[in-house]
């Protein structure tokens, strides 16, 4: 009997930590009048599968631009973004974004908004209804399924925005300051909800924020961006045990450290 040869797939060179996302030397330059503004310069980092990474930076540091490049809404001027080793070229349901502003379809009810991405996927009406019910329940909006977006609060809208992308089972969830427009209490509720969902569904999340407390409360790892041009200036692993208490000393220490890094 021959020894069974062990087949090693040659398809992909495994990167460090088997990165799901690889941002490789991304640079973004915008023309401003006759000259150019370098918004992002040599941005390089990786995100592993299942990781929750927060990107913090002051306003204008290019963190939203970076997220748009990750989503495929913008093309980088140089460098590339790889998802599973493949270059990201256009938006797609494998990388879903939750926007800061209300981006729900105002003519559709909560239920129809959540079901929107499932249309054209060959699911039966019953399957769609079951899926939508499941995700509405996950974000706690079962009773509001027939409301129009303009009749629900800002926090509830962001729950809908979350449900309508989670239902598509994206590989990466991109969040662009999604809770910035909410009041402090709702914001903490939404952060807790996001963590619960993350535990249940084990997504990979890239979360952009300018709120240090939010970053420390959520992240496995925080990337600190510098301004003009935007670069990843520092990385910080957050080792605090979950659930994290925002009033504990180690939490506040870390927040202080990040605050200093931002300055």
């Amino acid at each position: 009997m021959k020894t069974r040869a062990k087949v090693i797939p040659l398809a992909r060179r495994p990167g460090p930590e088997d990165a799901l996302i690889e941002v490789d030397g991304v640079r973004k330059v915008f023309p401003v009048g006759a000259s150019f503004l370098t918004v992002l310069d040599e941005v390089r980092f990786q995100v592993s599968r299942g990781e929750l990474v927060c990107i913090i930076g002051r306003s204008g540091c290019g963190k939203s631009t970076l997220l748009k490049i990750l989503a495929g809404f913008l093309a980088p001027s140089a460098g590339k973004v790889l998802l599973n080793g493949e270059t990201v070229a256009r938006p797609g349901p494998d990388r879903c974004m939750v926007f800061q502003e209300d981006a729900l379809f105002p003519w559709l009810t909560v239920r129809e908004n959540v079901a929107f991405g499932l249309r054209g996927k060959g699911l039966s009406t019953t399957e769609v209804r079951e899926q939508v019910d499941k995700f509405l329940a996950l974000v706690g909006l079962r009773e509001f399924h027939n409301y129009l977006p303009r009749h629900i609060s800002g926090g509830m809208k962001q729950r809908v925005a979350l449900a309508r992308v989670l239902i598509l089972e994206p590989q990466v969830l991109l969040m662009d300051e999604p809770f910035a427009a909410l009041d402090a209490q709702t914001r903490e509720e939404m952060q807790d909800l996001l963590l619960t969902l993350w535990r249940q569904l084990s997504h990979t999340i890239i979360f952009v924020t300018h709120d240090i407390t939010e970053a420390v409360a959520l992240a496995d790892r925080v990337l600190v961006m510098s301004t003009a041009p935007g670069r990843i200036q520092q990385q910080l692993r957050v080792e605090l045990a979950r659930p994290r208490r925002r009033d504990r000393e180690d939490f506040m220490d870390l927040a202080g450290k990040l605050s200093a890094a931002l300055r």
């Binding site: 989503a71 938006p91 349901p93 974004m97 929107f116 249309r119 054209g120």
Partner: peptide, 22 residues
Amino acid sequence: NPLLLQAGAMMGVGRVRGTFAI
């Protein structure tokens, strides 16, 4: 609102459906 079209694009909506549905 361009955000609505972007939201559609990321949910995998093509040009034709984007026109009629968004």
